Amino acid sequence: MAKTKATIYNVAMRANVSLATVSRTLNNPEKVKKETRDKVLKVIEDLGYKPNAFARGLASRKSTSVAVMVPDMTRSSIAEMVNGIAIEARKYNYSLIIYVLKDEYHEESEMLKEVVASQADGILYMNDEINEQQYQMLNRIKDDYDVPIVLANTLYPFENKLTTVSIDYHKAGYGITKELIEEGRKNIYMLTTARKYMVNDLKESGYLKAINEAGLEPHIFRTSGDISVNTIHFDELFHDVGKKIDGVIAVRDSIAVSFINSMIAKGRKIPKDISVFGFQNTKYASLSRPKLSCIDIPITEIGVRAMALLKEEIDNGTSKTKYIELPYSIIHRDSTKK
């Protein structure tokens, strides 16, 4: 029986690296870490692989694929960011593989299996829940498999080695809390998620800084992004301290709108009785009645810039810029007094 001819895909799979890494080893070896380069070259020798013109041109091929890892495609902000990624990816004829990160994907073995099996040339990681274990897992994927990774709208503030595109969530949380204080609000609540997310922790830290500076009592209320759940929570909150609340910051627009609807049903007037800020400027902000004031995060632009940086890393093995902090703005609508 004739021996099957080895392909670049066989090399990538055996060496546990991406197709782009094999291509760089063949075309631009100086851009590949020596350890990885030696590993790939040994596999090439062991398999007797003979690169053809197609393989040598893989660095600029039209079949580059990117794994886009998202927490939940039903969230408006995630859909907007994926749209930004797709806009930029089309410029390079990249294909996107979407991974929705449910609980089982958070186990290292599962994620490694999925990413390596897909032979993705790079990863855009958009999950806003990133802890020490997950961060180290991403670094192992990057180092062991030589797969470029960019964090999009996801911050790991402790000695981050991964390329990142985001806004300053701490500063944003501080800014809108200061605005509510300047309105004369005294009992300002931060409505955040029961589940811990790194970006929400940063929003909370900004809120707490402004509250402490003003000598006010902090109120952090944890709820769910699920309207059927948080409506019940807001009814309970109103029963306990409803008349005292005069300012609210919600970490998601959907939570802010759900809170507004609950308070209006209880007879509270927005913004006369309670000023409310959201934190995304998604479609919910404009559909809300009254329309929601909020932080305007450049979601689409984050996706575009993250994809551009990932392309740079795929092509060169690294990027000149490791952190891009995009500007945000505060949109004042009818749910606050300004």
Results as ranks from 00 to 15, higher is better:
328 Y>M: 07
298 P>C: 07
215 G>D: 12
77 S>C: 09
273 D>T: 09
14 R>M: 11
124 L>P: 00
214 A>M: 07
241 V>M: 08
45 E>H: 11
199 V>L: 13
226 D>V: 09
253 D>R: 09
80 E>N: 10
320 K>C: 05
202 L>H: 08
53 A>C: 12
87 I>A: 12
97 I>P: 02
15 A>V: 01
279 F>C: 03
24 R>E: 01
326 L>G: 03
300 T>P: 00
148 P>Y: 02
228 S>C: 00
31 K>P: 05
161 K>R: 15
122 G>Q: 00
210 A>G: 10
109 S>R: 12
6 A>N: 01
92 Y>D: 05
54 F>I: 14
58 L>C: 11
324 I>L: 14
78 I>V: 15
42 K>M: 13
287 L>C: 07
260 I>A: 09
21 T>P: 01
27 N>M: 12
139 N>A: 02
183 E>F: 14
160 N>C: 02
80 E>V: 10
17 V>H: 02
200 N>L: 10
223 T>W: 10
63 S>I: 10
318 T>I: 13
265 A>V: 08
188 I>K: 01
14 R>W: 05
54 F>M: 15
45 E>S: 15
58 L>P: 06
32 V>W: 01
237 L>S: 00
78 I>Y: 02
180 L>T: 09
198 M>Y: 08
285 A>N: 05
273 D>I: 09
126 M>Q: 02
264 I>R: 14
61 R>H: 14
178 K>Q: 12
93 N>S: 15
334 D>P: 04
111 M>P: 08
231 T>R: 12
334 D>S: 14
102 K>P: 06
109 S>F: 10
150 V>E: 06
53 A>T: 13
243 K>M: 11
299 I>L: 08
3 K>R: 12
147 V>Y: 01
247 G>E: 03
81 M>Y: 03
197 Y>L: 15
51 P>Q: 06
6 A>M: 04
301 E>A: 13
6 A>W: 03
185 R>H: 13
170 H>F: 09
73 M>Y: 05
148 P>S: 07
211 I>M: 07
201 D>E: 15
222 R>T: 10
321 T>V: 12
338 K>G: 05
242 G>F: 13
82 V>H: 07
273 D>S: 09
52 N>M: 10
12 A>I: 01
21 T>Q: 04
